[in-house]
Nucleic acid binder design. Structure first.
Length: 637
RNA sequence: GCCCAGAUAGCUCAGUCGGUAGAGCAUUUCACUCGUAAUGAAAAGGUCCAGGGUUCGAUUCCCUGUCUGGGCUCCA
């Protein structure tokens, strides 16, 4: 048996049997030695995590506080879960079970179409803990494909994977092949087992033994399509989370609880901001007075910045004749995302899913000169999109919403400068709302869904790229993620608890100017075609509001708080003075009210705090006498 | 659209093995007038999501729909 020797940071060496246990693991989870060991020299060659060594055997080092280490233990936990499920539910079919962010999942099909219940999760959890306790070693085997098919004869999903791998059609970059991508070269299939009865296709690596696991929790059951195919069978997916230590698990659960407390749907009810009445239908909201104040402040600020930024305001209707969307291409490309047609005596009408076609009509309403360009049209435009029922999510995914939408018409040679100054504008406005951490993505052409010629796409992509480089913004590339009419830049922001949200978008469009035959007269007295930039900064006002609500956990900065101050008289005798104070504040433009003394002071303070009012002002005898007040700020602003 | 789970007072939830329901908070009234996160008492508050079926009787069981939640798929 060949040996693998690893030099440890303390100068000592350790040898492992290569092949018998192919996952080489630092002696205990939580040890830090692995990070240093990754750079160790094995058999005279540099190697890295997960790199195949010696006839396809894999070696990996895990450490408790590395992403690689967590990945390994999560995936191993997924195996144990599948093992528990197959023991508890004879005849269960198991498909794939990868590690994901914070945890893992495994997809199953139970006999007779049975589904998992909450009680099942408890039983599975219990069985998993027994397997952990049994200290079963994970071992690796390689089987010829034909034998693997025999071994997994009663597991149709596994057979499908084996066939895909042995025919060479598995794609290791495909999420659905995560588990299968590297299980073999086509000739042989690698499997892991930790008891004689349970084995699973897997490229490894795994922890050496089930006893290294244990800090996990099964979270929920959900439906999931086999291989993500909407037409394919629906499997039962169990999600779990797994960590290297109890404290890490607890921390994760705590983070989840924090995020739940910040849920904008919950806060919207608690703070009386807005609601989604059933009578309206799914994905449609009504704004209550307090929510409306915040929204109005957001919109006012946006209008002010756009005025200063050289934008011209326009208004356009909510409906349009279908011919307009035929011209724009929406009916060809996104009919499914539009509300159904309304037949009228003079044509077929649709709710507008976007404002751009109408802005094109404004551009085209008369002849344009190059001297007018860039022409920046801005509208807080209401659009309606028929989002599929299962995708609606509070304010984040909604069917009727308002875009802070602008379309900038400019000469192609102006585009890079215009985009660079747009980036500046966008981030300056986002900073005003309290975001400081931005990342950008450049989305490129979707080869299956685009219009226009390839050269135009290339030019547009270069313009966006050079604008970001000019601005000095780092960006990632999302291949094939662009809209059908042109490439785009999306700006993601990180919120107070580290989640990222895609907010702003800047999209290059050479397609609509073509379709609407937009022109300008150039300095050469000839007609030219402008290009168009779509850009939304909030994205949707509703969604941005939802993100702000979660970012601030309901405690909006004072400038946008629905109520900025509440005056509390200590007792009945102080009420007149309290009203005087509030009136004075209101005359200074401060949103203030008074909570009279019907309840005890402590209770009124508590209520004001729960309402997240920035300043609670208490007035009693000494304040009346000296014309003062006690200031109790919310803190944290 | 698909899978699973829900919908009971304004909110959060309990309950009814099928005999039209209850708590806490909020609301109203009364008492208390209080100096920094819950004073006490009383009252009022419900088509138990909607429609159909089974039943002597349905909020409860079944079906359909609507809406919500978690996923999948989608996201111009």
């Amino acid at each position: 048996m060949a040996q693998i020797t690893i030099s440890l940071p303390d100068g000592s060496q350790r040898s492992y049997d290569e092949g018998a246990t192919t996952a080489v693991v630092a002696s205990s989870i939580g040890s830090r030695l692995a990070k240093a060991a990754v750079a160790a020299n094995v058999d005279g060659e540099e190697w890295d995590l997960g790199r195949p060594l010696h006839d396809g055997a894999l070696v990996a080092i895990i450490t408790g506080d590395s992403d690689e280490g967590r990945h390994v233990l999560r995936h191993s936990t997924a195996h144990v879960m599948a093992q528990a499920v197959t023991q508890l539910f004879p005849g269960a079919k198991y498909s794939i079970g990868p590690a994901i962010n914070d945890g893992f999942y495994y997809d199953f099909e139970l006999p007779g179409g049975r589904t998992f219940t909450e009680a099942d999760l408890d039983a599975i959890d219990e069985r998993m803990r027994a397997i952990v306790k049994a200290d079963q070693p994970f071992t690796r085997d390689e089987l010829p494909a034909a034998e693997a098919l025999r071994v997994f004869a009663d597991q149709p999903y596994k057979c499908e994977i084996i066939e895909r791998v042995s025919s060479g059609s598995a794609d290791p970059t495909d999420i659905d092949d995560l588990d299968s991508g590297e299980i073999g070269s086509g000739e042989t299939i690698s499997v892991y087992r930790n008891t004689p009865e349970f084995l699973d296709l897997c490229r490894g690596p795994h922890v050496p033994s089930t006893s290294k696991l244990g800090h996990f929790k099964l979270m929920k059951v959900a439906g999931a399509y086999w291989r993500g195919n909407e037409k394919g069978p629906m499997l039962q997916r169990i999600y779990g989370t797994a960590w290297e230590s109890k404290s890490a698990l607890d921390e994760h659960l705590h983070r989840l609880a924090e995020a739940e407390k910040r849920d904008h749907r919950k806060l919207a009810v608690e703070l009386d901001l807005l609601s989604f009445p059933h009578e309206l239908g799914g994905g449609l909201a009504v704004w209550h007075p307090k929510g409306a104040i915040v929204r109005k402040l957001m919109e006012d600020y946006s209008r002010e910045r756009h005025t200063n930024g050289g934008y011209q305001f326009v208004f356009t209707p909510h409906l349009a004749n279908g011919n307009l969307f035929q011209t724009s291409g929406h009916l060809d490309f996104y009919k499914d995302g539009m509300y159904p047609p309304m037949e009228m005596d003079n044509g077929t009408y649709y709710m507008k899913p976007m404002n751009c076609p109408m802005h094109c009509l404004i551009y085209r309403s008369r002849q344009r000169s190059y001297r007018e360009l860039p022409l920046r049209l801005f509208e807080l435009g209401n659009v309606y999109r028929y989002e599929r029922a299962g995708t609606l999510h509070g304010l984040m995914r909604i069917r009727g919403f308002t875009q802070d939408d602008s379309h900038i018409f400019c000469m192609p040679e102006q585009a890079a400068d215009e985009i660079a100054s747009l980036l500046d504008f966008v981030m300056s406005v986002l900073r005003a709302f309290g975001f400081t951490d931005f990342t950008a993505n450049l989305s490129t052409k979707d080869p299956k869904k685009y219009v226009g010629d390839d050269a135009a796409w290339d030019d547009a992509t270069v313009a966006l790229r050079s604008a970001m480089e000019k601005y000095g913004l780092e960006y990632k590339i999302k291949e094939g993620d662009a809209a059908f009419y042109g490439p785009k830049i999306d700006i993601d922001v990180r919120d107070a608890i580290g989640r990222t949200w895609q907010l702003s978008t800047i999209q290059y469009d050479f397609n609509l100017p073509e379709r609407f035959e937009l022109e300008y007269v150039g300095a050469d007295n000839a007609r030219h075609r402008p290009i168009m930039l779509h850009r939304a900064l909030f994205g949707s006002v509703e969604r941005f509001f939802g993100v702000l609500l979660e970012h601030y956990a309901g405690a909006f900065p004072t400038w946008m708080a629905p109520l900025q101050a509440r005056v509390l008289p200590v007792a009945e005798g102080h009420e007149a003075y309290a009203h005087e104070v509030a009136a004075r504040l209101r005359s200074e433009g401060i949103r203030a009210d008074v909570a009279d003394s019907a309840d005890q002071l402590g209770k009124r303070i508590r209520a004001a705090k729960l309402d997240k009012i920035p300043y609670v002002l208490v007035v009693g005898d000494s304040d009346v006498a000296a014309s003062t007040l006690g200031v109790n700020p919310r803190g944290g602003d």
